[in-house]
Design a protein around this nucleic acid. Structure first.
Lengths: 226, 226
DNA sequence: CATTTATATTGAGTTAGATTCATTTGATTT
DNA sequence: AAATCAAATGAATCTAACTCAATATAAATG
């Protein structure tokens, strides 16, 4: 057996083991929750000794982070596929929303797991990179919409992003608890917001009612300052 | 010392101890995070023995739940106060959004803590009751708006609710990471969605609104000249 | 191919920290 | 003030994450 071949097979063997551990961890976390998941059980599921897990992941937290990272990587791949069927901005946005909501409801545990990862990770922690990659999908579509002149009255992108993902994540919780409710209603409603709120070209200064409220707010602050 | 008095003082003493433990737990959880918080440290902060904590709370999880419950109870009280200054539906909604966002940014840890509580608690778990009470505030305002005919084109209430709280919770994370960004922008944007998307589209345009604006302009100039 | 060197794996042992419970302390009743 | 009951204590127990000396396996060398 020559050096190149044996090295490759060895490396492959280790990569396979790493995958086995990662899959075992994902199964165990999903089945038992983060607290309930035991490192010994993960090792058993992956058919390795308990100590071996620690050769691949420093500790339980890091293992959870890896599981979460992989989840978002996979999700990004799926979302990209779902988006690419369309070219129209609104349709792409709708496809992303549909996909995102469906997957979050289906794998609801991961919403909670992700919060754990965010809790400790700093802004530039590598375990959050896949989440940023996923979030970037929205940004792509949205700024394309702005470029194309579809969204005229658009807010700062981070505001639209939080609206989009925040609404969907909350809705995923609701839909997880009430499976009888329709996912389509949420998506349709969210998309209608983007259409109605950001497409409005007639009144660049905002609708009459908005103007009235702005004026009232100004008056209020004047009165407060007296 | 008669029976009634001594019983009351004894009960008060225990209630005081329970509060001391709860406050100690809150401080410890906030300072150290859920994993980092040690039951021994909580006991020390509350000036009781470690075992005493377990007389009041079955375990660490239940103690966290109690801390989270209290947080939402206090928040509900604060929100109610913030809302009550207004009678106008839109203004009340704006006040709630403003209050909610500000508090979530300020006590951002509790967003994560609350997820922990939700993870295990079932739909009718008592530890989630205060959260439901808080969420009901939105429902009150929103259905009032529907009753008053302000929201004509409104979706099912749970959809609007998820939009409202989901957007704000996500925005709180963003604002926590980027303190330079303006909370007001988020609130203003969210409220404008409610106004534009849900308001009566076929309302008698122009004249009444124009009159209102004229009148407001007059008030404004009067105030300026003072 | 035998031998040395390097790398990967193992699982028993250690440790930290949550939880328990026999004992003590303090209050209440008779 | 003795008996009874409730509350508090903290040492002992238990569990599960993590470590590390010993062992097995693979790679390199001559």
């Amino acid at each position: 057996m020559n050096k190149a071949t044996s090295t490759r097979t060895q490396r492959q063997k280790m990569e396979a083991k790493e995958q086995a551990i990662l899959n075992a961890a994902r199964a165990e976390f999903s089945a038992m929750g983060v607290e309930g998941a035991k490192m010994s059980a993960i090792a058993k599921r992956a058919s390795v000794a308990e100590g071996t897990v620690y050769l691949y992941y420093r500790n339980k937290k890091e293992l959870l982070d890896a599981v979460v990272s992989k989840f978002w990587q996979d999700l990004t791949r799926g979302a990209r596929a779902a988006i690419h069927k369309n070219t129209d901005t609104i349709q792409r946005l709708e496809a992303l929303a549909q996909f995102h909501l469906r997957e979050l409801v289906r794998e609801f545990d991961f919403v909670g797991f992700t919060v754990r990862t965010r809790e400790t990770g700093t802004l530039d922690s590598p375990s959050l990179e896949p989440i940023r990659g996923y979030v970037a999908l929205f940004d792509e579509i949205f700024s394309q919409g702005v470029d194309r002149g579809i969204f005229v009255n658009a807010p700062k992108i981070w505001i639209a992003r939080d609206l989009f993902y925040g609404t969907l994540e909350y809705a995923s919780r609701t839909l997880h608890l009430h499976p009888d409710r329709a996912q389509e209603d949420v998506v349709e409603h969210l998309i209608s917001l983007f259409q109605i709120r950001y497409r409005e070209t007639a009144a660049p200064e905002g609708s009459p009612l908005v103007e009235v409220n702005k004026r009232l707010a100004r008056i209020e602050s004047m009165l407060k300052n007296q």
